[in-house]
Simulated assay, not measured.
Amino acid sequence: MTERIVVGMTGATGQIYGIRALELLADTEYETHLILSNAAKINLKQEARTEVNEVVALADETHDVKNIGAKTASGSFRTEGMLVAPCSMKTLSNIAHGDAGNLITRSADVMLKERRPLVLMPREKPFNRIHLKNMLEVTDAGAVVFPPFPSFYQKPWDLDEMISRTTARALAQLDVDVAIEEWGGIEASDIE
């Protein structure tokens, strides 16, 4: 059976995380199913210096966000999980409250009901109480909230390396293994 990953991209800042996920997945055997919100298409032009058709070309299949009858809207369409990167607070709220009004939120709802992995990379700062409550709601429902906070302990050379590491860690929540250097730990002699 073909292993599939659904990638949703919403209108939050951080479009590079969705792009990088598709790039990393392209080097695997996974079939990718992309869903772009209308706001994501606008933000791609604003911040990613890439055209929508270039992002679409990274995926094996792209589905219209308005088509709630697409494959990914059904539990009978077997997938390994879904990543929403970036995930707007509007989308996170809709998922938290079962509002499946577009294909991204419907596909996320399918992941939760089928007990498949759902990883959300929310991009907002600072979080308000409503954001935090919604994050708790989706976590309680089975999703993983994975804000794209970079790590520095491996002394990344540049922003591109931080984005790749963060995105690879998010994909690892879906059991997707991409080539990225693991943390080797600190020797006790280095601490003293």
Results as ranks from 00 to 15, higher is better:
144 V>T: 15
150 P>N: 07
101 G>Q: 05
110 V>E: 10
133 K>A: 14
114 E>D: 13
117 P>H: 03
98 G>D: 01
94 N>T: 10
93 S>F: 00
120 L>F: 08
141 A>C: 01
104 I>N: 14
115 R>Y: 11
147 P>D: 07
135 M>S: 03
131 H>M: 05
145 V>W: 07
110 V>R: 05
113 K>Q: 07
148 P>F: 03
111 M>N: 06
93 S>Y: 02
141 A>H: 00
103 L>A: 09
150 P>W: 05
94 N>V: 02
140 D>I: 00
153 Y>L: 09
102 N>H: 14
105 T>S: 14
130 I>C: 03
120 L>Q: 06
145 V>A: 10
120 L>I: 12
152 F>Q: 06
102 N>F: 05
142 G>N: 04
126 P>V: 08
125 K>W: 12
118 L>Y: 06
141 A>V: 03
151 S>W: 01
130 I>F: 06
151 S>C: 09
97 H>A: 05
124 E>M: 13
91 T>D: 04
142 G>L: 09
127 F>P: 11
141 A>S: 08
89 M>P: 10
114 E>V: 13
133 K>Y: 00
94 N>M: 15
151 S>F: 02
106 R>N: 11
104 I>E: 11
121 M>D: 05
152 F>N: 03
140 D>R: 12
124 E>R: 11
137 E>F: 04
108 A>E: 12
128 N>F: 09
91 T>G: 08
136 L>A: 02
126 P>S: 10
118 L>M: 06
139 T>C: 01
95 I>T: 01
141 A>I: 04
113 K>E: 03
140 D>A: 08
128 N>G: 14
90 K>T: 14
100 A>Y: 13
131 H>F: 02
118 L>N: 07
114 E>W: 11
146 F>E: 04
150 P>L: 01
139 T>H: 03
153 Y>C: 09
115 R>E: 15
111 M>C: 15
136 L>C: 00
97 H>Q: 12
147 P>F: 06
107 S>P: 04
